[in-house]
Simulated scan of single mutants.
Amino acid sequence: MQKYELIKQKKFAASVYRDGVNKRIRVDDLQGNLHFFLTHLNNDSQFDNYEKLIIKARESQFMTLIERGFVHEGVINHYFNGDRVHFMSRFMKEERRTSSYWSQEDDLLSSVHKLGVYPSFMDSDDSILVAGTGQAEELSSLYKEVFKLYPVPLHDPRYIKDAMKNGTIFVCIRKNEQIISAASAEINFQYKNAELTDCATLPLYRKGGFMKNLIARLEEELLYRDIYCAYTIARALSYGMNAVFHQLGYEYRGRLANNCYIFDKIEDMNLWEKDLGQ
């Protein structure tokens, strides 16, 4: 079960995402008295059903959360209308805190950082389509084939249609009468940022440079909408996706341990950010 809710009480207001699939609670925005909110959450009868609590904290909340035992996992420098967000986490179970792949992911990241930064390129035979609701069925078919598990229900075309109606931009490349690669930008219009996500390419077409071109096209669409903070949360075990973002000029900002179920298991996720205004 996944649901958003706005919790408003006398001394605080919080936008909370309860993610039963990934056994986590994510607080996307918290204003007001931080201590009162944490007390409220601890008294919540459903709180014990989750294994990880993530708070997207403002600069002024950082030290208080450190004092309350939260772990600093990453940062996006321009998230809140140009101001910094800190990803602060509390783990309710020891096994959720401990990653089996951390050293391997460190080695992978070191290899990625040795790569140069290159612009995208576009094959003259390819065209990028900004997808509409009419492509939702095709997109869901792509995601079913690429991902056995995914943090959100992209296998359901209704979910994709709802995301589009709420402002998420999907772009895709078509070959041989099918969508072979796609990506999206989930825009936060209130805080002028966008998460680049839902990156998928059919196995037959990988290593063709398609994802670089899709990301570059999403950046163009974001700039057109006056969105300058672009970030992504990429599988820390995926050399290809981390290489794509590094080569397109994104900067590494941290790693979220055991963050979500994706591909075939629960995985660590790397944060990357780019200031599109530079």
Rank of each mutant, 00 (worst) to 15 (best):
F80P: 01
F80S: 02
Y118Q: 12
R97W: 09
S111A: 08
Y79I: 04
F87R: 06
M92P: 01
R96N: 00
W102L: 12
R97Q: 12
D107P: 01
S100P: 00
D107M: 08
F80E: 00
N81L: 13
H86T: 05
G82E: 05
S120V: 01
L108E: 10
M122P: 02
Q104H: 13
T98P: 00
S111R: 15
L109P: 05
P119E: 04
L109M: 14
D107T: 13
I76D: 03
R84V: 15
W102Q: 15
N77H: 11
P119L: 00
T98E: 10
M122Y: 09
S100V: 02
E95C: 02
S103P: 03
G116V: 08
F80Y: 15
R84G: 03
I76S: 03
Q104S: 11
R96D: 01
L109R: 13
Q104Y: 10
S99T: 14
M122G: 07
V112G: 05
Y118V: 13
M92N: 10
P119D: 05
L108M: 14
I76T: 07
W102F: 14
W102H: 10
G116H: 08
V85G: 02
H86W: 10
L115M: 11
Y101W: 08
Y101L: 09
F121A: 10
F121M: 09
S103A: 14
L108P: 09
D106K: 11
M88P: 05
S120A: 15
L109F: 09
K114R: 13
T98D: 02
F87D: 04
H78S: 10
N81H: 12
G82L: 04
H86E: 06
R96I: 00
D107G: 05
D83E: 14
M122F: 12
K114T: 10
L108Y: 11
S99Q: 05
K93F: 02
S89R: 06
R96S: 00
G116Y: 08
S100W: 01
S111Y: 06
M88E: 06
Y118A: 08
K93M: 02
R97K: 14
S103Q: 15
R96C: 01
F91R: 01
D107Q: 15
H86P: 04
G116K: 11
H86S: 12
W102I: 13
H78V: 00
Y118N: 09
F121H: 12
N81K: 15
F121T: 13
S110K: 12
R96A: 00
D106F: 08
R90G: 06
